[in-house]
Design a protein around this nucleic acid. Structure first.
Lengths: 259, 259
DNA sequence: ACCTGAACACCGTTCAAGT
DNA sequence: ACCTGAACACCGTTCAAGT
């Protein structure tokens, strides 16, 4: 199956038709054939267990008992492999399809699921830089998120912006996970200790808050920030429903004429 | 000046004493000496103008009329150079010290300044991944941001979390700037067109909102999301002042006992 | 027809050898 | 004392040559 694409990896067209590419059934005994599926799987294992630096085309090929040139018969570049990994990880964030009592709960659960999944694959986080994910799983997540907000009564423009705000907030948080190699329990204590150690005259505010917050973790900060956004959305929804205007939006200028 | 550090780049200690490291005055005519300052400057020029891939130690050395080994006499690794660039960019986000009427205005202005600065150096954005910036300029920004919130009446824990929420939101947005090489005016139209082109039966919500938002830009989405967070903070501040409790926090569990 | 060893043009980093 | 050419151990990608 040589599906070397004419489209650059990450481009919308590139994903089309790749949703499910099941490998042909392993014929008889012996090593299964190298295929897109096995390549992505092996690459993800290397990335998760040995880090981004360890994921090289040579290493990947040797793990698969093959050679780099063979890899390039299934994949057009290393970046394409990375894009596949990114979307696959997004796929892991899928929620069980339970019903939520409120749209707030649904938003929280969705954001949390994405955040948790990302932090479970810390070595893959850099893959989410500079490319807003647009693979099949990213699309599914976006669809479900916007649908929740529409169902809650948000006007369409509101729903889109609300989803984007939450998604980018989650990525922003996940991306700066301070993953020191020494994964000791007091992990985020390092940064906090640093803040506390600063000169309290040049950094009065920083040292004040650092002293007062001994038990705060980055996960708790995430929950707090997420709460702020949802509160903001709640506010906006109330305003929308009261005035019944089409698009209030907190002092943002909206509504250019369609081209 | 050989200040090869025993501390790993990015570690708090590594930054200490590096705030201002002015080069010794250029002695007489001829090429100025290679020094930390010139290295960072040249590296930043290469990064901004030619991209991250073009920034190699060899290329940097030849631009400076030197050799790679000489570079390593002023710097312990390429990562150290990158960390310096990241902090220098943060330094560009400094606001003019004008007085703001409200803390909301101040927050907005600060977040906008950081966002704008980051988008002005798109090639440098990946530098902000996996390391929460802790250089002198990052510290200054944090100090000023938290000070604003404290002055507004937020309890310390609140101020710290609020600042973190805004900072990570900004990074999350900046990090996914869809910088197609073809920087045409309808830049973010590509992704939107893609959403619009999807099958409206499998992606009803996505296509609905894509059709309705012709003029939206990523900058406008940024403003909207920022507004949500500030609204949330406003809410929280009101609650705090009314009840005068120490730490309300939107349903986040806070306040572990200090160790 | 399918696969691969070896090459090409690079990396970051180090060090023996020069002046 | 300071600097550097050349080396070391890698990269991603390609292609002539094998079976």
């Amino acid at each position: 199956v040589n599906d070397r694409s004419i489209h650059p990896p990450g481009s919308p067209e590139w994903w089309l038709g790749r949703h499910a590419e099941p490998e042909p059934a392993s014929r008889g005994p012996g090593r299964p054939p190298v295929g897109l599926e096995r390549i992505i799987e092996a690459a993800m294992e290397i990335l998760d267990s040995e880090g981004a630096d360890a994921l090289s085309m040579r290493g990947l090929a040797s793990r698969l008992g093959s050679s780099t040139a063979t890899l390039y018969r299934h994949v057009s570049s290393k970046d394409e492999i990375l894009a596949h990994i990114a979307d696959r990880i997004l796929g892991h964030a899928k929620l069980e399809r339970v019903a939520f009592d409120t749209w707030q709960q649904a938003c929280r659960a969705g954001a949390r699921a994405l955040y948790t999944t990302l932090t479970e694959h810390p070595n893959a986080i850099p893959l989410f830089v500079k490319q807003v994910p647009a693979g099949p799983n990213a699309l599914d997540a976006r669809e479900r998120g916007i649908a929740v907000l529409l169902a809650a009564g948000f006007p369409p423009g509101f729903a889109a912006r609300g989803y984007t705000a939450i998604a980018h907030f989650v990525i922003g948080f996940a991306i700066q996970q301070p993953l020191d190699e020494t994964a000791d329990p007091g992990r985020d204590g390092r940064l906090r200790d640093y803040y506390r150690s600063l000169d309290s005259r040049t950094y009065p505010a920083t040292t004040t808050v650092a002293d007062i917050l001994p038990g705060a973790t980055i996960d708790e900060e995430f929950e707090f920030g997420l709460g702020l956004i949802i509160d903001g959305l709640e506010n906006a929804l109330r305003t929308t429903q009261q005035t019944d205007t089409e698009m209030p939006g907190p002092e943002a200028t909206l509504g250019h004429a369609p081209v």
